[in-house]
Amino acid sequence: MTGMSPIVKTVTRWVSPFILAFGIYIALTGHLTPGGGFPGGVIVAGCFILITLAYGKERVEGIFDLKSASVTDSLASLSFLCMGLLGYVFGGGFLNNFIQSGFPGKAFELLSGGNMPIINIAIGFKVGGSLFVVFAYLALFRAIEEE
């Protein structure tokens, strides 16, 4: 897999930072607007998949290889669980919002969701990591077949 035509490569080079930023934005503002960790994570993973498709997987391996993706995956889910357990310890219940206990939060402000943004970030990492892992494994199969 050496990558695709220069047109694709060029477009990818221009577009991919914006895609990444958009994914992060979606994940971060999940408690305010439609979106959240899952779509954000999908977009982030899509960015990396795009790079892999355009440049070949050697290029991506420097940034985000299989191992680190699955580590991210596991760590993100663990941190989600930790948030739940922290809510259990401090907020009186599993997944309770222990940072901001009042309801509702202040609308249209970024730092208003209590632990929601943190959970969204965790989910974003989780989804991004696992989607990329799935893609990378399937690409691995493809590579085995081609050999």
């Binding site: 799935v134 494994y137 399937l138 199969f141 085995i144 077949e145």
Partner: peptide, 10 residues
């Protein structure tokens, strides 16, 4: 499913 299908093909 896809992973298993690929494995099955192998």
């Amino acid at each position: 499913m896809v992973a298993i299908a690929v494995r099955l093909y192998q």
